[in-house]
Computed example of a mutant assay.
Amino acid sequence: MRAAVYRRFGPPHVVQVADVALPPVGPGEVLIEARASTVSSADRRARSRDVPPGLWIPSALTLGVLRPRRPVLGMDVAGVVAAVGSDVTRFAPGDEVVAMLGSRFGGHAEYVVVPESGAVTTKPSTMGFEDAVTLVFGGITARGYLGQVDVHPGTTVLVNGAAGAVGTAVVQLARYAGAHVTAVCSVRNIDMVTALGADRVIDYASADFLAEKAAYDVVVDCVGNASFPRSRHLLAPGGALLLVVSDLRGVLSAGWYTRRSGHPVITTPGPWRVEDLAHLVALAESGDYRPVHDRTFDLSDVAAAHRHVDAGKRANVILRISDGGPRRHDHAEPASAALRAASGSHPERLNR
């Protein structure tokens, strides 16, 4: 299969399209023929090893030390089930699905394997693959953070970095819950975040949101410049700080600040849950969650997609893996062999 591969850390050009082996499929796993993924800020950080201060050593456990441990990036995928393992009961070949891969990566390839027990569910019937994949990385991350605090009608929420993949998802989910949302972004993104549900927008270039006199029930920092000491004064009594981006000091001190101040400081979205992804799909099908695109790139232009992300993207940068058309002839036989191996004694599960 074709995949976007990087064999060393560095600038965008280290990512190149190459032929790689199809992934093996275990009894409890699902093989997805990918149609779309995103090039996220997490992919950029992994590729360049540009991680927050203090997190170089912890990140090396996931990303690798001298060279990438997982040479195919991509934390999310939308596609069609090509084959299932013998123990799989939730999916069948031909199902259209979305999945969060997380630190397993692998979404920037023509095929990807996910465990049936993971965050994988049927994609919205109202969306194509490129729209559907925008729900995954930003949406499930936002849902994971917001699910740890009480957001209800009248809750005041400030979102720093509201124009990113996670930020646009936070704005929409908070607005759906009835919150009053203040968004922090650049002037060029004001119309976008307002259309997504922000009640008020602060242009960070002309006003410092940290100088605000207002107090918020929830502050969500998707940028990494609103640590607890810098933003504590923005929190209402019992208000929570959700640090989507944080350095090592912020991560290690979160528990101490929570206990001493009475303000929950949360630095992780928790495990990726299929329930959260299914909730996003339901919202999308009802029209309560909108896909937000920046630009779309073909797999062959993956380095250009990374350059665009490096330059400062907004919302979701889509990587079109396939349009669902015929495969190249030189990959037909290996793919067929892999599907036969994946299905084992269950040839009726092949998507021929």
Score class of each variant (00 low, 15 high):
5 V>L: 03
7 R>L: 11
10 G>F: 01
12 P>N: 03
20 V>D: 01
21 A>K: 01
21 A>Y: 02
23 P>W: 04
26 G>K: 04
26 G>P: 07
27 P>H: 06
32 I>S: 06
37 S>I: 06
38 T>N: 08
39 V>Y: 00
40 S>Y: 00
43 D>C: 08
43 D>M: 09
48 S>M: 02
60 A>E: 06
61 L>I: 10
62 T>Q: 00
64 G>F: 01
68 P>V: 04
68 P>G: 02
68 P>Q: 02
71 P>Y: 05
77 V>Q: 11
77 V>K: 09
88 V>K: 08
89 T>Y: 02
93 P>M: 02
95 D>L: 01
95 D>W: 00
97 V>G: 15
100 M>P: 02
100 M>T: 04
103 S>K: 00
106 G>Q: 09
113 V>C: 10
113 V>F: 05
115 P>D: 15
116 E>H: 13
117 S>T: 15
123 K>T: 13
126 T>Q: 12
127 M>A: 10
131 D>E: 15
132 A>E: 11
132 A>S: 15
133 V>Y: 10
134 T>F: 03
138 G>W: 00
141 T>M: 08
143 R>N: 07
146 L>C: 02
150 D>P: 03
157 V>M: 08
159 V>D: 08
166 V>E: 12
169 A>D: 09
170 V>T: 11
170 V>D: 13
172 Q>P: 06
173 L>C: 04
175 R>G: 14
177 A>F: 06
178 G>W: 07
178 G>R: 08
187 V>S: 15
188 R>V: 06
189 N>V: 01
191 D>M: 02
191 D>W: 00
192 M>P: 03
193 V>A: 14
194 T>G: 13
194 T>F: 01
198 A>T: 05
198 A>M: 06
206 S>N: 12
209 F>G: 11
210 L>H: 15
214 A>S: 12
214 A>R: 09
215 A>Y: 04
219 V>N: 11
220 V>H: 10
234 L>Y: 03
234 L>H: 04
234 L>W: 07
236 A>P: 02
239 G>S: 09
244 V>E: 05
249 R>P: 09
251 V>C: 08
255 G>K: 11
258 T>P: 09
261 S>F: 04
262 G>M: 05
268 T>P: 06
272 W>Y: 08
272 W>V: 09
274 V>E: 14
274 V>P: 03
277 L>G: 12
278 A>M: 02
280 L>Y: 05
281 V>Q: 11
281 V>S: 10
283 L>Q: 04
288 D>T: 00
291 P>K: 09
295 R>S: 07
300 S>E: 12
305 A>N: 13
310 D>G: 09
311 A>S: 15
315 A>K: 14
316 N>F: 05
316 N>P: 12
321 I>L: 14
322 S>D: 15
322 S>M: 08
328 R>G: 07
335 A>F: 03
338 A>C: 13
348 E>P: 11
351 N>V: 01
